[in-house]
Amino acid sequence: MLASIIASGLALGAVYALIGITYNVMFAASRVMSFTAGQLGMLGGVFGALFVGRLGVPGPVGLVLTLAACAAVGVLTEIIAVRPVLASLEKHLYVLSTLAAALLIQQLTAIEWSTEPQPFPRLLGLGSGILDEKFWLPVLACAAVIGGLEWMYRRTLVGRAFIAIAEDNFAARALGLPERRLRMASFALAGAVAGLAGFSSGQLLLAFFANGAMLNFYGFVPVALGGLGNNRGAVLGGLALGLFQQAANFTVGGVFASVLVFTVFIVVLLAAPQGLFGAPAVRRV
């Protein structure tokens, strides 16, 4: 039982962590928390099942197509739900505009895809039991994303521009950085990260439209635990959440596991709004 808890806990935890990173990447460039984060994760599973399962595209090509499609949806979110709100005086309306965008994505999927969970094809055919690919693929994806982001932030000028915009948007603009293009790029990146989360966990969570709302919430918990904008915190928080949830699931059952997770979430939010690992320094002025 312990092995199952760890296998499924780490797998789900990695997915939650990736959705948490999706929230963070969007937030860093725009100061906007978007309800589309979980929906993009759901789309990763649906597009994967569509391309690889229904259309029979080879796995790697299907992955690239899925990431591209999710990145496109990410950019679309920025254009229709984020940019108009940032341009207006009432910036807090982003909560509503991204909620609307998320519902549009979810309903469209339910109508055009299916309201029932659809199977996701086996990708590599590797491993069985607790070493099945469905358990380690999400962990692998999470490690890849973390490595890729670290490389980007440390080694590329674009990555530094992202850091600059996240720290002081006004100074970055005054310096002549192409703020709007960078924001769109970060929404594309966020879409791809979420798409990868959905694709890698397809065999675990299936291609199901309701996963979006579920991932929205469980993906936000790591952000609350780890502190807004803190990717390492999100990974630690995500894995902790996955393990905790699965342990509770196996020992006290699903209902109390859900209630426990929610209670912990609320308590952490109320006791430490900055997250357990602290958020990066607040902007001056």
């Binding site: 000028l157 530094r160 006004f170 310096l175 001056r284």
Partner: peptide, 19 residues
């Protein structure tokens, strides 16, 4: 208010100005 980017190195701060 000398708003430089505190998390980036001096060279990177200048590199961004030449983005």
């Amino acid at each position: 208010g000398h708003r430089v980017f505190t998390q980036l190195s001096v060279t990177d701060n200048l590199a961004l100005a030449a983005y």
